[in-house]
Amino acid sequence: MNIAVLSGKGGTGKTTVSTNLSLALNANYVDCDVEEPNGFLFLKPNIDNVYEVEEEYPVINKEKCVGCGMCVKVCNFNALAKVKDDILVFDKLCHSCGACQYVCKFGAIEYKKRVIGRIESGSAFGINIKQGILNKGEPMAVPVIKKMLSSINRNELNVIDCPPGTSCNVVNSLKYSDFAVLVTEPSNFGLHDLKLAIELVKMFNIPFGVVINKDNGEENIIKKYCINNNIRILGTIPFNKKTAELYSKGEILYFDRDHKNIFDELVNNIREVLPWS
């Protein structure tokens, strides 16, 4: 089973919930925020395996190319351009769909591979940990996310730390998910982006619940919205000095007695919503 942890925007505490939830569940942790993975900063695993993620891109054989431009016309991603009689390739825009090679009647296009990122895996505190890292300057994170998620075992319990927002990166993370934990904060911006995240998980028909970070224990707009829309609040993380100090030091909240109770209760509430053996 895969439990996705996501938020409509960055900075809500998504990684804090993901890492501590993994420990509370004794589940594998998978960091899909490949543009800025932070889970390893808290879990500090011993990395025992690193492998590169490659993506294919077209290469033009100038001896065979007649400059007809059919490959340019068929490319929906503007990865090819015709300049006079030459075909230019913008490899970072290529989605490796193969359409250009298919329409070329002269066999002038072949595909080669280039490295766009890497996947690191290891272990800490008795759980398996994995993160993807997109190389600097690369515009597309989806291939790294797909490569990483295709390698996990869905018969095991996995917590997927999704990218922030509701972009295609998040969409591709949710495709592998069975349950979603939506992390938000009690602010107008938090509510706005929570609504976007809720719309997204509903599109995939994924059961979900909400965790409110920076909660002061009083009524707020998030609680009112969830109550009015019959949305389950799975738990809250307090807005206090102790939580902030532990977080700022990069310490695991779950190892603190008070916070351990918070995440154990979160696990129990998830079990109530989505039982598993």
Rank of each mutant, 00 (worst) to 15 (best):
F106L: 11
K147D: 12
F106Y: 14
G137Q: 01
E156G: 06
I119D: 02
I152K: 05
A141D: 08
A124E: 05
S151D: 15
N128R: 11
K113M: 09
I145K: 07
Q131G: 01
C100S: 03
I129N: 02
A108C: 04
P139Y: 01
K147F: 02
G132K: 00
K105Q: 13
I116V: 15
L134V: 00
E110D: 14
L149Y: 04
N135L: 15
E138R: 08
N155H: 09
Q131L: 12
I119P: 04
A99P: 00
R114T: 11
V115S: 12
G117K: 03
E138S: 10
I127N: 09
S150L: 11
N128F: 07
I116H: 08
N155F: 11
K112Q: 13
E138A: 04
S121P: 09
K146M: 01
E110V: 12
G132R: 05
I109N: 06
V103M: 12
G122E: 08
E110K: 14
N128D: 15
K113A: 02
R154M: 14
P139V: 07
G122I: 04
S123I: 00
P139H: 02
E120Q: 12
P139L: 05
Y102H: 13
I133P: 05
R114N: 08
L157P: 03
A141T: 11
I119L: 13
S121M: 14
F125D: 13
A141Q: 00
L134E: 05
P143V: 05
K147H: 11
R154P: 00
Y102Q: 09
N135Q: 13
A108L: 04
Y102G: 00
P139K: 09
K113D: 08
I129T: 13
F106V: 00
I129R: 03
I109E: 07
N153V: 03
A99S: 11
L149S: 13
N155C: 07
C104V: 02
C104F: 04
I152P: 12
K147T: 14
S121V: 03
I133Y: 06
A99T: 00
E110N: 13
I127Y: 04
K146N: 15
V144Y: 00
V142R: 11
G137E: 05
A124T: 10
G137Y: 01
I145F: 06
A108V: 06
F106D: 08
N135A: 15
E120A: 08
A99E: 10
R114P: 06
I133A: 01
A108G: 02
K105I: 02
R154W: 03
G117Y: 04
K147Q: 13
N155A: 15
L134C: 03
S151C: 09
S123T: 14
K112P: 02
A99W: 01
L157K: 11
K136G: 06
M148P: 12
I109R: 10
A108N: 11
K130W: 02
V103G: 03
G137K: 05
S123K: 14
I133D: 02
S123P: 06
